[in-house]
């Protein structure tokens, strides 16, 4: 029985790996889209908005299959791990775009005006003044998205990536002990999400700007 649990636990590395690919990829793409939406002009903003609507309107597993089975093989020949992780990243980028564009907006137009007033170009203002403040504002909602991506990483089981959920299924089939098998999986996911949230809470505290009350 112990060896069985080792088998499930080994899937943790893959779960973490999938998350470590999809989350940053989603961030890079989501931030670019958020910048395009807020600063890119009317048509670019509309395109970004349509992308967001589409990606958030379809269940991630459906998008996973579309991206994996239809795109790869004809266009790109990606392994299940990369196809699954990038597909998840693409889905996440839409949600991250929404978080980040809200954060960018929250920074306020005044900051941009003040930056332009000392002669900064629009891009310099975005880079040095707006984005650094927006990122701080985005940490709490982003922490939520990170948890979601971690849990959604289980969806790559459908592509055959040997992560925690798939292993739990195999275990359940072999041992006929579904509660133990899936319970172990649930415990692993819970611990991962808990640790991630704690880490991000710590980050939010650390990057908080001092006020007169501190």
């Amino acid at each position: 029985m112990n060896q069985f649990f080792t088998y499930i636990a080994q899937g943790t590395f893959i779960t973490i790996a999938v998350t470590l690919v999809s989350l940053p990829f989603g961030l890079a793409l989501g931030l670019s889209l958020a910048l395009v939406y807020n600063y890119g002009g009317r048509w670019a903003a509309r395109a970004a908005g349509a992308y967001s609507l589409l990606m958030r309107g379809v269940p991630p597993i459906v998008l996973l299959f579309i991206l994996y089975f239809i795109l790869s093989g004809r266009l790109l020949n990606l392994s299940p791990f990369w196809a699954g992780s990038l597909a998840l990243g693409i889905v996440s980028s839409a949600y991250q775009m929404e978080i980040l564009r809200g954060a960018l907006q929250s920074v306020g137009g005044g900051q941009m005006v003040a930056a332009r007033a000392i002669g900064m170009s629009r891009w310099q203002a975005i880079q040095h003044i707006i984005v650094p403040q927006a990122v701080r504002l985005a940490i709490p909602p982003w922490s939520n998205e990170a948890s979601i991506v971690l849990k959604d990483s289980s969806l790559v089981y459908a592509l055959g990536v040997p992560e925690v959920l798939r292993r739990a299924q195999q275990l359940s089939a072999t041992t006929q002990q579904p509660f133990l098998a899936f319970g172990a999986a649930a415990l692993i996911y819970f611990v991962l999400v808990f640790l991630t949230n704690r880490a991000l809470d710590w980050l939010a505290e650390k990057t908080k700007l001092p006020t007169q009350h501190t």
Binding site: Q3, F4, Y7, R167, Q169, Q170, T174
Partner: peptide, 17 residues
């Protein structure tokens, strides 16, 4: 070779994974 290793006794995983 593709398989669905959740179907004893044709294909499944043993206690060593």
């Amino acid at each position: 070779v593709g398989t669905s290793a959740d179907y004893p006794p044709f294909e499944y995983i043993d206690e060593n994974g």
